[in-house]
Design a binder for these strands. Structure first.
Lengths: 298, 298
DNA sequence: ATAATAGTGTCTTTCAGACAGTATAGT
DNA sequence: ACTATACTGTCTGAAAGACACTATTAT
């Protein structure tokens, strides 16, 4: 982006200024993207009549080198000098999953000076949602393993303290990530800080539980955003295949929100985001259900 | 944050690894923070009976050097190697306004490779809201002027096109910033991009209108966030003084949302976020109004 | 008295939550 | 026939929107 053509105090035009501009010897941080790649998959059931349950899954990579060697981390990597943050995010996503046309949204940028013991790393996190069909997981260079972990994130303790002017509000939540015999269980502490008339929540990691760097916190932030956004946007549909039943859609909402919904109310709520087809899903020992598609709102 | 103590493939412990770690000669981007500092001020009226109107104001700085010399830009600056992004934002805020206990929220990180003609600059934008009383504006080093501009941001054209499978949705909005005889007027184009079943809005600058770099877009993004958040959070109160009338509070909502609200409904809506006092504002030729304070929700 | 604002009451519509009911495939 | 799910109808209460009404001060 270039601007006008006047001269500055040293009598230089913009071209002259840029030609002599020395980007300097200032130390600069490294910039990376961290990817939260979510999907929802079926958990097969035993009973031939019962529908498969669903589970929210997150892709993690086992670190093959220091720091945090052997721990599980979010996929991600350095931003190249000639690509935008979003391009870097798409590139990482494609490298990890082989998928490219998915929902992608910038989440937050994490910039504490000591997030990474190697050097100053500023990292922008991205949330991506993909339909679980057609996923292809590759291991990337500096990681020896990539796995989908089942995600649970739940508040387990809340403390209100009010003595006179001093008020405290603390909330503890547990983030559990499970894959076969591997279980990661981090604890996060949320504190309501009040300064004067202003107050805001601060989150810290009480126990990383085997999750590398500050990634437990990033994951928690991502899940909170996902839970908020599923209520007032259509992002849930980026987790669905082309055709789906309303019960499947409801299960996706339930597994993300971590609570049960009433069928009749749910159907009323999503009625106009959804288009009926004349296909049916003929399953097991019960009434077949109509298949629907996503209806774009305009 | 340090992790475990095993050895990597080269037989190094974490300490050994970090001691030999060379942060490398990779080129790195510069990282900056850009500050959107909003406040709401009174616009004095002529009629002794009438209440003063309110205006939403944004702090801009006139660029004193290339690039974009003479244009108006968001205050901001480089992030030091030993401070977090948020610390940098607080520092810039304090430098510009002298205020420090204000609402501050990270907005978005802008990372297009060509945002700045000097070098690759990745910039995290922060939204801050301050009560207009007790503001103190200083000019900073590389800017010769800092001014509060009145903000207007409004959609002025909408185009739906539907021919068969090809659908387009374009929306144009104008961002106007006014200060005395200076008027900046940028035009932004929002396009609904649809790829397969996914769609999302993309925003581009049609006309920067005298606003430096990509700051018109950043400002527009900030206003949109402000408009959203004022509906479901209490951020409006960080624009209010300790004591305020409900009409003043309503005016703040109206000036941010750019629409009029019905008094009775507004009062019902904010009733439980607000605490009655026994003070009154005794003004001009009309009934005095009760003063309220913010009631913290717990 | 009047202008301008302060403040309240209530009607309607919409929507979320709860729950009870009917329908229908596969074994 | 039975099981598990598919799907619908309706009651309730809360909240949003619209609007009309009363109250009170400085000039």
């Amino acid at each position: 982006m270039s601007c006008d053509k006047p001269r500055n105090k040293m009598g230089l035009t913009e071209e002259e200024f840029l030609a002599q501009y020395d980007s300097g010897n200032y130390e600069r941080p490294s910039v990376t993207v961290d990817m939260l790649i979510f999907t929802v998959t079926d958990v097969e059931s035993d009973n031939y009549r019962k529908l498969p349950e669903k589970a929210l899954k997150l892709l993690l990579i086992k670190r093959g080198d220091h720091p945090c060697i052997g721990q599980w981390a979010l996929p991600g990597g350095f931003v190249n000098m000639d690509e935008s943050l979003e391009e870097a995010a798409y590139r990482e996503l494609k490298e990890e999953t082989g998928v490219d046309k998915v929902y992608l949204e910038q989440l937050y940028t994490w910039g504490d000076p000591d997030r990474d013991p190697r050097t100053r790393v500023i990292s922008t996190s991205y949330l991506s949602l993909t339909d679980s069909s057609g996923l292809d997981i590759k291991a990337s260079d500096d990681a020896d393993d990539a796995r989908w972990f089942t995600v649970t994130y739940r508040v387990f303790k809340e403390q209100k303290t009010m003595d006179g002017e001093n008020k405290t509000f603390e909330r503890f939540s547990r983030l559990t990530l499970q894959h076969e015999n591997e279980t990661l269980s981090a604890v996060l502490k949320h504190t309501l800080k009040t300064e004067g008339r202003l107050s805001r929540w601060e989150t810290s990691i009480e126990d990383p539980g085997g999750i590398a760097f500050d990634h437990a916190r990033i994951i928690a932030y991502g899940i909170e955003r996902l839970r908020n956004k599923i209520e007032y946007t259509d992002i849930a549909f980026s987790l669905m295949p082309r055709y789906f039943t309303l019960t499947e859609l409801q299960q996706v909402y339930e597994v993300i929100l971590d609570k049960e919904l009433l069928k009749a109310n749910f159907r009323r709520k999503i009625a106009n985001r959804v288009e009926e087809t004349n296909r049916y899903k003929k399953d097991a020992g019960h009434r077949p259900s109509k298949l629907y598609t996503y209806r774009q709102e305009f």
